[in-house]
Lab assay of single mutants.
Amino acid sequence: MADQLTEEQIAEFKEAFSLFDKDGDGTITTKELGTVMRSLGQNPTEAELQDMINEVDADGNGTIDFPEFLTMMARKMKDTDSEEEIREAFRVFDKDGNGYISAAELRHVMTNLGEKLTDEEVDEMIREADIDGDGQVNYEEFVQMMTAK
Rank of each mutant, 00 (worst) to 15 (best):
F69P: 03
N98M: 15
D134F: 03
E88V: 11
E15K: 08
D96Y: 04
K14L: 00
V137L: 03
V143Q: 06
G24Y: 07
M145I: 07
E46K: 06
S102L: 09
N61Q: 05
M72Q: 15
I126W: 06
D3V: 06
M77H: 09
D23E: 11
E84Q: 09
G34H: 05
M125G: 07
D94G: 10
I86G: 14
M146I: 10
I126H: 09
M52T: 13
Y100P: 00
G133T: 07
E128Q: 01
D51E: 10
S102N: 14
E12H: 10
D51W: 01
E105V: 14
L49C: 00
T118D: 13
L106P: 00
N138K: 12
M52D: 15
E105S: 02
E7R: 09
D134Q: 08
D3S: 03
S18L: 14
Q144Y: 08
Q42V: 01
F17E: 04
G34W: 02
K76I: 10
M110Q: 03
T63S: 06
M52K: 07
T147L: 11
D130C: 09
S102D: 08
E55Q: 10
L106T: 03
N98E: 15
G114R: 05
E140P: 05
N61F: 03
E124L: 00
E141H: 06
M52W: 06
G62K: 11
S18D: 13
F93D: 14
N138D: 12
T71S: 06
A104E: 01
E15N: 02
F17K: 15
G133W: 00
Q144F: 03
V56C: 04
M146V: 13
K95S: 15
A11V: 13
N61E: 05
D81S: 00
I131H: 14
T80N: 03
L5T: 14
D123Q: 02
I126G: 00
I28H: 04
Y139A: 01
K22L: 04
E115K: 11
T147D: 10
G34C: 13
V143R: 15
Q136F: 01
K22E: 13
E32C: 10
E7M: 06
E115R: 00
I53M: 15
A16C: 02
N54S: 10
N98G: 12
Q144E: 15
S82F: 02
K76V: 08
Q9E: 09
L113P: 04
K116W: 15
F90L: 08
Q144T: 06
A104S: 11
T45I: 09
Q42G: 07
M110H: 05
F142T: 07
S102C: 14
L106N: 06
K14V: 01
D57T: 09
L117S: 12
I131E: 00
G26C: 11
F90V: 01
E8I: 12
A11M: 03
R87A: 15
R127G: 11
A47K: 09
Q50R: 14
E85Q: 04
M1W: 08
D123C: 03
T71G: 08
H108E: 15
K31A: 07
M146R: 01
G133F: 04
G97W: 01
V92R: 07
D57G: 12
I131C: 07
Q144A: 00
E68Q: 04
A74E: 02
P44H: 10
I53E: 01
R75Q: 07
E124F: 06
F69N: 02
F93K: 07
F17L: 12
I64M: 11
I101E: 04
M72S: 01
Q50L: 14
N112F: 01
F66P: 01
E128Y: 02
G133M: 10
K149N: 12
E7D: 14
T63Y: 00
N43F: 15
R87E: 14
D79V: 09
D134I: 02
Y100H: 13
T118M: 10
I101N: 01
E68V: 05
R75F: 06
I86S: 07
D130F: 01
T29K: 14
S39T: 11
P44A: 13
M72N: 13
M125A: 07
A74Y: 15
I28D: 15
A104H: 06
D94R: 01
M73Y: 08
A58V: 14
V122I: 11
I28C: 02
R75Y: 12
E124I: 10
E115Y: 15
E83M: 07
D25I: 05
A2K: 03
D123K: 05
T147E: 08
E55I: 05
M145E: 05
E124K: 12
A104I: 01
T71L: 15
E32D: 13
L40T: 03
T45H: 06
I101W: 01
Q42I: 06
T147K: 08
N61V: 13
E48F: 13
H108M: 14
E120T: 02
T80K: 09
L5H: 01
E68W: 07
E120K: 08
I10P: 15
G41F: 15
T147V: 15
A104Q: 04
D132Q: 04
D132H: 01
T71E: 03
R127W: 09
A148V: 13
V122A: 13
Q144I: 08
E15I: 15
L113Q: 01
M37Y: 07
A2M: 01
N43L: 07
N54K: 09
I10M: 07
G26T: 05
Q144H: 10
I86F: 09
R87I: 02
Q4W: 00
D119Y: 12
F17G: 02
L117R: 05
P67C: 02
G99R: 10
H108R: 12
T118I: 13
E105R: 05
M125Q: 04
E8F: 08
K22N: 14
Q50V: 03
Y139W: 10
D65S: 14
M73E: 08
K14N: 09
F20Q: 10
K78D: 07
P67R: 09
A129F: 01
G114T: 04
M110Y: 05
